[in-house]
């Protein structure tokens, strides 16, 4: 049976993971490669690396990191952050990334999604959507609105039709982050995720809000998500991946068990 996927997300800067990580047994918890290998061994189904650097020099470091990760882990991994051209994507895929994730660039230039899908295949193009429930102006109702710049800047795009549009343009997956839930540990945005997933023919990776193992159960059932992504709860061992997978399997969700 096709399983639900558990995806740890690593924020990287200058080739190292940022946001503290608290992995025992690692020589260097900041070393992204070592952390990636540890997650792969624990049964993570996939990894996402989010590059939060800006400069060209640092981008080179990212490519070196991707190259080292590809030589080390044997599960799919996605790289996102600051990707805005075919050349960026080509360099990352060449360095060994299995997929790339684009966000602001897709909002600025939606045709980029079509171009990337045509050039590299939909299977490696993830479109990340950061969304917030806000009112676009006085007297206007609150709606789910796409944001860019790490969720700080609202656009004029409504999230639900945008999700459909990116699929039609050739996205292979959607990484949906609810900025309202992100960091709260109060659970994923179930209703929005469920609406988008029910409406989509491509997988939806839900992100933002995971605090307990039951939050994952909810996002896979009520939220109809295909994958659940989280960062700090994994980094700080608040939830260990083998425990999470056992829990979800015991709740009748299809899981890839590796141990």
């Amino acid at each position: 049976m096709l399983t639900k996927r558990i995806i740890p997300c690593l924020d990287v800067k200058d080739g190292r993971t940022v946001k503290g990580v608290n992995f025992l047994n690692l020589r260097d918890a900041g070393d992204a490669v070592e952390l990636a290998a540890a997650y792969a061994e624990q049964g993570a189904d996939e990894l996402v690396f989010l590059d939060i650097t800006a400069t060209v020099e640092e981008r080179k470091t990212l490519l070196e990191l991707v190259h080292r990760v590809a030589h080390t882990i044997n599960i799919p991994f996605t790289v996102g952050g600051g990707i805005s051209s075919k050349a960026d994507v080509s360099a990352l895929l060449h360095a060994g990334a299995d997929k790339v994730s684009i966000n602001s660039a897709a909002v600025r230039n939606p045709d980029l999604i079509n171009e990337l899908a045509l050039e590299f295949g939909s299977q490696c193009i993830v479109v990340a959507i950061d969304t917030r429930y806000i009112s676009l102006g006085e007297g206007m109702p609150e709606e789910h609105i796409v944001h860019t710049h790490g969720g700080r800047k609202p656009t004029e795009l409504r999230t639900i039709p945008w999700a459909k549009e990116v699929e039609e343009r050739g996205a292979g997956e959607i990484l949906l982050t609810s900025m309202d839930s992100d960091g709260t540990k109060n659970g994923f945005a179930l209703e929005l995720t469920g609406t988008i997933s029910a409406n989509a023919n491509i997988p939806i990776i839900a992100s933002g809000g995971a605090g307990t193992m039951d939050h994952f159960r909810e996002v896979f059932t009520t939220g109809k998500a295909d994958a659940g992504l989280a960062a700090s709860i994994f980094h700080f061992h608040e939830i260990d991946i083998p425990d999470l997978k056992n829990y979800l399997r015991d709740h009748h969700l299809p899981m890839r068990m590796t141990n």
Partner: peptide, 30 residues
């Protein structure tokens, strides 16, 4: 959803290529 994307189990193996695999091994499809 189509594509079939993600990890799924394979079964009824009868090939030297699957030697040493556990039953119902999971592999990645797209």
């Amino acid at each position: 959803k189509v594509p079939h994307m993600g990890w799924n189990n394979i079964f009824d193996y009868t090939t030297p290529l699957t030697q040493g695999l556990p039953d119902d091994a999971y592999v990645y499809f797209v």
